[in-house]
């Protein structure tokens, strides 16, 4: 399972970085989103992978911490998702403004030639 997750994160971030080096604004926003997904998975994996383990303690009875997943990375991921979503929306607006002002979707606002 670690292997699959590692490959997944690697593919997401690798494709994201590739797209980030492309000259079109649409490629940039897709690249940034892919990187954000990869990073979110990465944060999640830093709490160690456990299957079918709840992050919230059950009430009553003795508690064995080994039965539970680490809740902090999950909380961090939630925050990161919200922030990433908001910044992506903001970037989308700027992208459209740039497209409208310059008539080009090149990051420099004009075609290379």
């Amino acid at each position: 399972m670690e292997f699959v997750l590692a490959i997944g994160i690697g593919v997401l971030i690798g494709s994201g970085v590739f797209l980030l080096f492309r000259p079109r604004t649409y490629q940039l926003i897709i690249g940034l989103s892919l990187i954000a997904y990869g990073v979110n998975l990465f944060i999640f994996s830093m709490g160690r992978l456990k299957i079918a383990a709840p992050p919230v303690l059950a009430s009553g009875g003795p508690v064995n911490p080994a039965d539970y997943a680490d809740p902090i990375p999950q909380a961090l991921v939630l925050t990161a998702i919200v922030i990433g979503f908001a910044t992506a929306a903001l970037f989308l607006v700027v992208l459209l403004v740039s497209r409208g002002l310059t008539g080009s979707d090149h990051v420099d606002g004009r075609e290379p030639n």
């Binding site: 980030l20 604004t25 940039l28 940034l32 910044t87 903001l90 970037f91 700027v94 992208l95 403004v97 740039s98 002002l101 310059t102 990051v107 420099d108 606002g109």
Partner: peptide, 12 residues
């Protein structure tokens, strides 16, 4: 246009 262009780079 100038600000939008510089701002785009800044944001990315």
């Amino acid at each position: 246009p100038l600000r939008v262009k510089a701002g785009l780079h800044y944001i990315v």
